[in-house]
Write a protein that binds this DNA or RNA. Structure first.
Lengths: 164, 164
DNA sequence: CCACTCTGTTTGCATTTGCAAGCACGGTGC
DNA sequence: GCACCGTGCTTGCAAATGCAAACAGAGTGG
């Protein structure tokens, strides 16, 4: 029953704090959170919000992302290549553009490596958040490419045009 | 509005959702949050916790980190890494694939900078999909994307995967 | 005209966050 | 003896999160 099974986040904070050799109150002051709340967080009785986590990370002088990963709020999955990581880190693109580039890149790699193998299970227009990893290009990617492809004149892009 | 760019997490979510062309309820189901709450989040009436943010990021299939940065929860000031150099260094791609990726990347950057320079897109509470001035990609680039774009509307995945 | 379905929104409420105040314990010095 | 530090922990309580249900419009079609 809703026992905050954030697990190691509290222990992780406590470890970091003890390694820094500062007291709970010191960290609470540095992080700008109350000491009782920090106490409860460290013992796993409370599940802090992202803001509190961020402040604690600041107070501990550790990376916010490391804390989010510990909290399970960021998937720390290994990027499949340096290209993907680099694209992801590029703040000059929109998120959609990033996704398009990464998807294209991965499609290219699959094509280049496998050459023949392909998956033909992308029939539904609805996305399934759980079961898509092998598709060539997702529908929303094509939707994102659509405005660019509009001037090509090849006519391959056929959309419902429900609203526009 | 001084610089409320990082504060408008809700607008960012709404933009991403509308770009993905899914309804609020669809996203709420995919993200596992209630639709009224998502509505309030998008309009800035509620400040979602990190968990909710993470679920929304999953539902949108965008990077959680990008969302946290948008929410101002991560001071992520990573330098604009050189995507082009990384693509060029990738030996798992063919030269032609590399060129296509680089072309797309540079087109995206031009478009992103041009679109961001005069007005940010959060001026209107609702975007009109037709008023986007997005520049088309070069024709040879679209030709390279053709086999992937085949699954847009006709459902026939015509993927020759032949690049020679 | 009415039923049905989709869109996003509002309302009321259980649950939770996060804090101020206070508690219990241990070590100092006077 | 006992005031005075420090440590972390417990207790209420205002405020916020997040949800279920109901609401208001716009299409669509019987």
């Amino acid at each position: 029953m809703a026992l905050p099974k954030v697990g190691s986040i509290g222990e992780y904070i406590r470890e970091q704090r003890q390694q820094a050799k500062i007291s709970l109150r010191q960290l609470s002051a540095a992080a700008g959170v109350s000491n009782p709340y920090l106490s409860q967080i460290e013992r796993g009785l409370r599940k802090p919000s992202a803001e509190i986590l961020n402040q604690i990370a600041k107070g501990l002088r550790i990376s916010s992302q490391a804390l989010y990963v510990q909290a399970g709020l960021i998937e720390d999955r290994e990027p499949p290549s340096d290209v993907v990581a680099t694209i992801r880190a590029d703040t000059l693109l929109t998120e959609r553009q990033r996704q398009v580039l990464i998807d294209i890149y991965e499609s290219f790699r699959k094509e280049h490596l496998a050459g023949d193998e392909q998956t033909s299970q992308n029939a539904h227009p609805q996305r399934d958040p759980e079961t898509d990893d092998e598709r060539p290009l997702p529908p929303e990617l094509l939707a994102a490419l659509e405005p660019y492809a509009a001037s090509a004149g090849n006519g391959t892009v056929n959309q419902e045009t429900k609203e526009g």
